[in-house]
Amino acid sequence: MKEYSQEIRALTMRWVRRLSREKFSMLFTLVQPMLFWLIFFGNLFQRAADMQVTQSSSYISFLTAGVVVMTVLNNGLAGGVDLLFDKENGFLERLMSTPIHRTSVILSRFIFVTTITSLQVLVILGVAWLFGVQPVTGFAGVATILLIGMMFGVGLTAISMAMAFSVKSHGDFFSVLGFLSLPMIFLSSALVPLAAMPGWMGFLAQFNPMTWAIDAVRPLILQGWAEALPHVGMVIGVMVLFDALCLYGGARAFRRAIG
């Protein structure tokens, strides 16, 4: 157990070090969702969006939940990228040739991605707060939002790592990533409530786990516990299932690649 924590600490520190050395990349990754989506998109659509439809006092307050979950989505789906590069340049082999527990590398990645995403979510909520969006459920609500984000993020990171271990080249990886990310956003309640979508899009969006996450985060920010709790209960159930599926698939891909 002592050895296991020594390995995981060292491996997690490596991801932190890498991030801190890629300052520009870090800056853009962190700033992008806030700048593009929350500030630009949120303010841009302030008047175009119908408050009757969004059921909120401003579009930006409606959008905040979407941007939080989009951030979880993007970070999660990109969570396997570093492992992909490690696989391609042989660093992963070097790590796996040491007497570490076979799960350590993956676990370190989960810890890292989850931590970074949680920090980013906090920053997004902070920026939203500057635009007058205050989560009505307070600190407990923010903690619940983080929990939902973590649960969703774990499954997404598992998908990303499974892809990283399965693809033949990193070109394939980024193609799939680019292909997955935007449809996941458009076919969810991130930008528009389901009820206001064209029928077929609303239908598809129901099956998107992102919709479930957003529908729980949004009332935590806008409405209050009474409205939020049923959704929160639901999303936790859905995410347990989602994570189980993703982790199972991820474990299989990992075993095939490493074993």
Binding site: R14, R18, N89, G90, F91, R94, S97
Partner: peptide
Amino acid sequence: PQERAIDRFL
């Protein structure tokens, strides 16, 4: 391992 198995940032 072969040459490139190095973390450029470390």
